[in-house]
Amino acid sequence: MKKNSNTLTFWLFLIPSLFIFINVVIIPFILGIIYSFTDWDGFSFFGSKFVAFSNYLKVFRDQNFLSAFLLTFKYAIIMVIVSNIIGFSLALLVTRKMRTRNILRSIFFMPNLIGGLILGFIWQFIFTKLFVQLGTVLHASNIFFNWINDPNMAFWSIVIVSAWQMSGYVMIIYIAGLESINPDIIEASLIDGAGPVRRLFNIILPLTVPSFTISLFITLSNSFKQYDTNLSLTNGGPYGTTELLTMNIVQTAYKHNQYAIAQSKAVVFFVVIMAITLVQVYLTKKREVEM
């Protein structure tokens, strides 16, 4: 009897979400997978021919796709580390009892509100003009030069701009985690005479593992899907060296008009990333349970 009512609640609580989610995300995605096995032209699916795996074969032979894949991995790993360290530190800072903490929080969070072409405008100015001027003034033109025109530094400019945005984003999640720690526990540790380092590692970090699970996954998935900053800052340049995966997929579809191949790329991308990240979520979730 109790079991039945539980099952009923379970579904009653889930059905509204699932209904919308399935119709908005799952079905279009499945359609996308179906399209990837055809010669779909980006318009009406009616009339497309089944081509089995030939799109996928093309994907694996596409040198640009493979190098974009590798670059995206490098980018994602760096981003996960950098933005979580900065984001968590910021959250630690602004959850202390400071008078101006709310203003500080708002400021750190502000970069998230600047997107698209404006973001490119501002940062291109910094990297292409301000840096050149700084280089002349400081006689340090080996550090400060036009980063956007250098393949290596253009990549790092994307990292910097994304970290500038993403750190404030995960800070918000860490704040929620830190704010929900029972203050009594901290109080008790103070009475025990725990130093700040021990307090961080023995009390705060274990209690914020859920926030870490979430933030790691969100930074990972957002980095893998990175498009806006890539587009507005370097647009893949110089000479295609900073083209990340999503940009590669978008260009395959909308520049080269190879919609079905682009769908196959998205599917390959999804499967690989899903395998990696679900392992990550599974591992950290397991840690949460053990805690």
Partner: peptide, 19 residues
């Protein structure tokens, strides 16, 4: 959780078609 990894650009045309 997994669907958070889908790049929006790859579902947008099927999405509009379907809905």
């Amino acid at each position: 959780v997994a669907t958070m990894l889908i790049p929006f650009q790859s579902v947008m045309i099927p999405l509009v078609q379907y809905l």
